[in-house]
Design a protein around this nucleic acid. Sequence first.
DNA 1: TTCTTCATGTAATTAGTTACATGATTGA
DNA 2: TCAATCATGTAACTAATTACATGAAGAA
Lengths: 224, 224
Amino acid sequence: MSRGSTLTTTSFAILGLLAVQPWSTYELTRQMDRSLGRIWPRAQSKLYEEPKKLVELGLAEASTEPVGRRPRTVYAITAAGRRALAGWLAEPGAGPVIEFEQLLKIFFAEQGTRADALATLAAAHAWAVERNEDNLVAAREYQAGAGPFQHRAAQNVLIGAFLVEFYRMVAEWADWATEQVEGWPQDPSRAIAEPALLAEVGRRADWDRPRVPLTRRGPSGIGD
Amino acid sequence: MSRGSTLTTTSFAILGLLAVQPWSTYELTRQMDRSLGRIWPRAQSKLYEEPKKLVELGLAEASTEPVGRRPRTVYAITAAGRRALAGWLAEPGAGPVIEFEQLLKIFFAEQGTRADALATLAAAHAWAVERNEDNLVAAREYQAGAGPFQHRAAQNVLIGAFLVEFYRMVAEWADWATEQVEGWPQDPSRAIAEPALLAEVGRRADWDRPRVPLTRRGPSGIGD
DNA sequence: TTCTTCATGTAATTAGTTACATGATTGA
DNA sequence: TCAATCATGTAACTAATTACATGAAGAA
């Protein structure tokens, strides 16, 4: 069974799509572009490769049909594939991983100009607006009855809600951060953080603390 | 200058750290673990490799000092390195990329059990709580004066705020999604999405629309 | 009939991870 | 003085991306 470990999350993403219906590879790439790619982004060529592995392992079957003189490969899940997928779904899985280049640039803002930082934040805001628009377009298409996923609305709305909240959060953060940076001096390496700001962020981080009533020990401040 | 294109975002992440102060490779890996890794996660061995590339390109200098019988390499940025970094900071950069395996499992929830989905959401919530705790620990260490970044508080608080909001958002989404899934039948493939729910998510997505007053065309619904 | 876009892949390259190896230091 | 952990790397492997190539279909 050591071959079982050769399946990556990307493999299961494909396998999951095949569980919904058979797809040609091109259709898979479209689907990735439009929906799955938001939460599991992968290059096109990967989507031509992975299904072959699934076939090797007996989790999917390939059939070719001609389109003019050239063949097209359509993949379908097998019973073994459904079992493997169910097994994967029973494991809790990994939490979100973020890669955020723009935030990296903010992290090193003191090595550049204030204008650099503001431009980066503007780009981040624009990114969130654009993604949100895409999301709305997809949702509207979906509501209009396009796509093969009408019967999957209950799941889709959970994904959509996550993305909506994420884009909104990024945009709000970028707005807030822009205000902060606008308050910086021209040379960002001289910027200082007001204690009140640190305290405010600290309070926002307090959502997961158990709400035990604290014993008051006098009018002391943070870090006490 | 085609060699210039060999620098990746990871290279600049390292270069940025070197701009703050010289580090030994091990210190770099610690720093990645504790802070930068949250927004640009990379494996340890990468951090031993990248600085060599920077040295080759003249953007950093290596010096070795003995620790007992074995050498330790310490890297420092050069003037050319600072210029390269400033150039990179002047470009707007890429927006956030998310990989979220647990969300993928929710997307395919109908292929598993309702209990699977609930366990996955519980794991997502636990992940957010744990990361938030880590974040708080790091922030407290930081406030206590540990770490070499006291003079970078203004930048750090922007990063910290983003992470706080992200973890909070994930936790709140997981709570909300759990409520939804609890309302599903035992067989998730029979779950249906109430129109009111779709409408609510649609409204939440409305934050970026221009607030032009719409011409009323009667009591029509969504998608009109 | 030619140009553009849709569709279907492969090849070359690189970025990144996992696994391993071993010296130094500290505390029981 | 032994075990555990801190510290410093290398090697082998794999996942993923970028670039390329070309046929089919539809529009001008």
